[in-house]
Nucleic acid binder design. Structure first.
Length: 553
RNA sequence: GCCCUCGUAGCUCAGGGGAUAGAGCAACCGCCUCCUAAGCGGUAGGUCACAGGUUCAAAUCCUGUCGGGGGCACCA
């Protein structure tokens, strides 16, 4: 019996009590089923009676008693106690609890998937680094979180498109071209240009590809360096992200917005909705109509579109491609943009609360030997994604970055992450999976098999540690759904750590395989179902984080 | 000045209105003749920044104060 099944049972009990005229309320669609921290409070607890007391006009404990009486009729439920102000503390029968192992094994890689976001069309944009340098640590947090979120949303039934917006138009790109040319010619970095070893390397590769670049007149040369540098840099960015296990469905070029007329189209759309003003020689979007501090310029006095105009075009383009919800994952340094994007959606006739969603992530603070390292691409002092992966590996990097909520400031100590990788919780979780894999290998070598469906006796899983483990396994789908809905992949990581701990405790207390020459018992076989179910959940959970589930460590 | 965000154990951090606030690291004490000790058990460690409010119930929601970080361009 899953928590969801139990919730249904409680709702049914309430409905039955209503039908029998025992209480006068509208039965809720769902009730909250919790797993209490303290097992004295049962396997599960619900506050349903507390919630119904007021509408029913009855004392909570009296309502609780009505529900409890009906729940006790179920064979799946061992006991129901009423505690405190009116909590229902429910203990499942071993049979009902153990059945979960069968459910999980049957579902396999799909266990944890749910339909809470079914058919929602979501566009998920993240990283979106300028192709003027490698992916650095600031982007890396979003790469890990964004990709995990993509997996979570898909697991929750959403139709997700992950998208990388390539800021390949505008001044920054031009400065990159200038910087490359300067590097190729051995000249000092221009005033507002990009410095750093990578600029020299990219410049060298550009010249190697196209030796004539340095011969061209300055203007043409800069433009050519810009284009070649763009291609080289973008290829490198893609490669880094692929290596990091991050998948993008769409790489969307800002340049194409300008070239395709999408910007003009967006202007027309916004004009149609009546929020565009021509004033002071510029074209403005009247975002103050929706509470922005001030209106925003779309076209400058010189006719050039602003970055905001491109954003508007991009947003409208996304909506026209059919996305119900456009999710932006931005760094805290862009948070001034949230209000603008939301008012932009409103000006386009959309609902800012449903069609657009902007997530703001705190920046990762980097310490080296206790001192803060400033991340600056232009100054060249950057920690890149590749450097991080070289130092700690993909698994540790992705896990560590996905382990904290995006809105909490995060401090990474380079010396700590590179030196003490064994302290990383990722190994703790992976170790549980490796330990299980090893056990399953041993079972095979001993010729002990889990056996078919019919031979599985869930009532044998009666030890407290087995109950704990089954309870934790039952939480997984809810964890996935919650993490997807709240856009918080870290919940999966925290859950896995808890599950691993519970498994290790089970392993310590409950022998699975027979010792010596003893024959395999039904208990061994029942436990193999439980162990395999645990392996599946660990593997599925790690998969959602883009972290491998090793069979050996 | 205005806006966003964070403040929980010595450190790094979890904690979607529920019961006695948790984990890892660091410290101390134990546990391998048997499935991976990268493990398990135990001890110690707290003014949940502060003050009000809402609620049967607040670390959690609301208001304010203090402190850290970030942001407020016809820049990108």
């Amino acid at each position: 019996m899953t928590p969801a099944d139990l919730g249904d049972a409680v709702v049914a009990a309430i409905s039955a009590a209503v039908a029998a005229g025992e209480i006068a309320v509208t039965p809720p669609d769902t009730v909250l089923i919790e797993r209490p921290k303290n097992r004295d409070h049962g396997d599960y607890a619900t506050n349903a009676a507390l919630q119904l007391a007021k509408p029913a006009g009855r004392p909570p404990r009296e309502v609780a008693e009505l529900i409890a009486a009906r729940l006790r009729e179920s064979t799946a439920i061992e006991s129901v106690d009423i505690a405190g102000p009116g909590f229902l503390n429910i203990t499942l029968s071993h049979a009902a609890q153990g059945e979960l192992a069968r459910t999980i094994v049957a579902a396999g890689t799909t266990y944890g998937n749910n339909e809470t976001l079914a058919k929602e069309r979501i566009n998920l944009e993240f990283v979106s680094a300028n192709p003027t340098g490698p992916v650095h640590l600031g982007h890396t947090r979003w790469a890990a979180l964004g990709d995990s979120l993509r997996r979570l949303l898909e697991a929750s039934g959403a139709d997700v498109t992950s998208e990388f917006y390539v800021n390949d138009a505008g001044v920054q790109m031009m400065r990159f071209g200038e910087s490359l040319r300067a590097a190729a010619l051995g000249e000092p970095t221009p005033a507002e240009g990009y410095a750093g070893d990578y600029v020299v390397e990219v410049a060298a590769r550009a010249v190697q590809q196209r030796p004539e670049l340095v011969e061209l007149p300055a203007d043409e040369s800069i433009e050519a360096f810009r284009r070649v540098g763009h291609d080289l840099m973008l290829a490198e960015i893609r490669e880094s992200l692929v290596r990091f296990g991050v998948h993008f469905d769409v790489w969307f070029s800002e340049e194409t917005l300008h070239a395709s007329g999408a910007v003009e189209h967006a202007l027309a759309v916004l004009r149609e909705h009546g929020h565009v003003d021509d004033r002071d020689g510029a074209v403005w979007l009247r975002t103050t109509d929706y509470g922005d501090d001030k209106d925003r310029v779309l076209l400058r006095g010189n006719g050039e579109p602003t970055y905001f105009a491109a954003d508007a075009a991009y947003y409208i383009n996304k909506r026209e491609r059919g996305f119900d919800r456009c999710v932006y994952m931005l760094g805290a340094d862009h948070h001034g943009y949230v209000a603008r994007l939301r008012t932009l959606a409103a000006c386009a006739g959309d609902d800012p609360d449903s069609h657009i969603e902007v997530m703001i992530g705190q920046l990762v603070k980097l310490l080296r030997d206790g001192e803060q390292v400033r991340l600056s691409k232009r100054a060249g002092s950057i920690i890149t994604l590749d450097e991080l992966v070289d130092a700690v590996g993909v698994d540790a990097a992705r896990y560590t970055l996905a382990r904290y909520p995006a809105d909490s400031p995060m401090t990474l100590d380079i010396s700590l992450i590179t030196r003490q990788t064994n302290d990383n919780p990722v190994f703790y979780v992976q170790y549980a999976h490796a330990r299980i894999s090893s056990l399953l290998r041993n079972a095979e070598a001993l010729g002990v098999q889990r056996g078919d469906d019919a031979s599985f006796d869930p009532t044998l899983l009666a030890e407290p540690q087995e109950g704990e483990l089954l309870g934790a396994l039952g939480e997984f789908p809810r964890v996935v759904a919650g993490a997807a809905e709240l856009r918080e992949p870290h919940r999966v990581a925290r859950y896995l750590e808890e599950l691993a701990a519970i498994y290790h405790r089970f392993y310590d207390a409950c022998r699975v395989l027979p010792t010596g020459d003893e024959p395999a018992t039904d208990l061994s076989r029942a436990r193999l179902w439980l162990v395999e179910a645990t392996r599946i959940v660990l593997a599925n959970g790690l998969g959602l984080l883009g972290v491998s589930a090793p069979e050996r460590m």
